[in-house]
Design a protein around this nucleic acid. Structure first.
Lengths: 135, 135
DNA sequence: GCTAAAGTTTAACCTTATGGGAAGGTCAAG
DNA sequence: CTTGACCTTCCCATAAGGTTAAACTTTAGC
């Protein structure tokens, strides 16, 4: 007899906020839960597992749309792991590209910061670079 | 005698969109430009330089708030380069941290993707990991 | 049994940076 | 005068929440 949890308890147990749990339900990521007569949402063990699934997906940077697809695959016993892997590898590529962009930015910033003496003088390589009209 | 540009021309010349130029003005990043009698915004060379400044700042990932501060420093002949460098180094740290987070995610995703055979079988290490209740 | 605190409900607005579109005014060419 | 390109303002939408508020419910203390 698994105990039913209110949204606050489910939030604490899953590591999500109550606000986001409602948001996920409202945006179709989660099915509507049963409610008490007063309208309070109630969560069982299975739903708690889904909340954890979402939290872990977010930790890995998946968008809610991607998590939606992953959840649907998870719930589908006839899924093909190929589909899951496709989503993951797409996301992996996105992450890799984002890293590359940030590293590029990091390099430029580091160079500029090193060229700025950072004293009480107004001359500044950083501003000079931002003010340059090229590129 | 520098020619005055309409917003569309200024957009093309600066690499920003007309939409965003209006937005930057509305949010206080740019001073209000003079207008024609019909209300069309007009941009001179000085303002075009500011638009380029903003574009380059965005390219380096500075937030609009940071760019606002940088623009104010740029316009202030009595600035101290220390202040500019402070903003840049704060942003540099943010970028570095973001890179670290993404690299962490990248590593986990790569491991999981390698463990998923990605065929027509439903078994999938990625889903298993997302479904795990720990952490 | 009453009351106060804690929890929940819906709802709305704020964030960042940007895009889309509607409805309407303006300008220049044909 | 019409057409098309441009401009104006205003509202909506995104992702993933945060914050706040009024009203209702539940629970615990007494």
């Amino acid at each position: 007899m698994s105990k039913l949890l209110t949204i606050g308890e489910a939030a604490k147990a899953s590591g999500l906020s109550a606000k986001m749990i409602r948001h996920y339900e409202q945006s179709g990521l989660l099915e509507k839960t049963p409610r008490t007569e007063a309208g309070y949402r109630l969560y069982n063990t299975q739903q708690l597992r889904q909340l954890n699934f979402i939290r872990r997906g977010r930790q890995l940077g998946f968008s809610l749309e991607e998590i939606h697809s992953l959840l649907n695959l998870w719930r589908d016993p006839g899924r093909e792991s190929r589909e899951v892997k496709e989503i993951a590898e797409k996301h992996l590529q996105d992450v890799a590209q984002k890293i590359a962009e940030l590293q590029q930015i990091h390099g430029v910033l580091e160079t500029l910061a090193n060229q700025c003496c950072g004293n009480s003088n107004p001359d500044c390589a950083i501003l000079d670079s931002l003010a340059a009209m090229e590129v």
